[in-house]
Design a protein around this nucleic acid. Structure first.
Lengths: 110, 110
DNA sequence: AAAATATAACACCTTTTGGTTTCACTTATA
DNA sequence: TATAAGTGAAACCAAAAGGTGTTATATTTT
């Protein structure tokens, strides 16, 4: 994390369980940092840093409202993960596909 | 990484670009460590550690064959990532679904 | 049996992560 | 206009991540 933290990618952003939990929270309702922090056993500063990482990955956006900063989810970058995954889906799907194919071929013998 | 590295989860395992590249390589063909290392600008020891992380996450299996250790891909754990993602798909899919719905409704007016 | 090959296991180093505490700044409110 | 509330930012810290090089061990090959 540290200070000059630049170009975090989405894979790194979702690697941390706390950050995944933050995303889940924000998926239900936008909220300010202090509200988010209340759900975790750590300081507001720590959460602020996690939000910074998520923000770098464009997974959250924050707008200032009065003295609060409201964060909201932006799920779009997750499409990159989905796309990456789609390449591997065929590997585990193939097992089912192959099984299905074999079963159907067997059935046609009747 | 270090020495006693235990319980790496799949999210952490795929967070590293090198490890993702290793997975891609193994998706095409199983191979021993030295063969994998040839594709990267780092030492075999470093790759061995990455393989250890991937192995902890059950994303690769290694079998010994003579003096070589052949590693092969095991994509199953990625299903956990897919499952996690599926919760968020609705957020970005909804936009498309909504658009599609609106367009179709518009078409039916004719 | 000796030499070569392939990997494993250590010890070590540097940078990054994930957290803390403290202080300053801005915006509401009594 | 103080004061409270909410956040931002800096300095610091321990541990983990991601590398390195060296040494040890097992398996072929000559």
């Amino acid at each position: 994390m540290s200070q000059a933290a630049q170009n975090y990618d989405v894979f790194q952003a979702i690697a941390d369980p706390t950050r995944r939990e933050v995303l889940r929270l924000l998926s239900q309702k936008e909220m300010p940092i202090s509200k988010i922090t209340a759900h975790f056993p750590m300081t507001r500063t720590a959460i602020a840093k996690h939000l910074h990482v998520l923000s770098e990955a464009k997974l959250v956006y924050g707008r200032k409202e009065g003295r609060e900063k409201i964060y909201q989810l932006n799920p779009e970058p997750l499409e990159e993960v989905q796309h990456w995954l789609s390449y591997y889906e065929k590997f585990w799907n193939n097992k089912l596909s192959m099984l299905k194919y074999l079963v159907e071929k067997e059935e046609k013998k009747e």
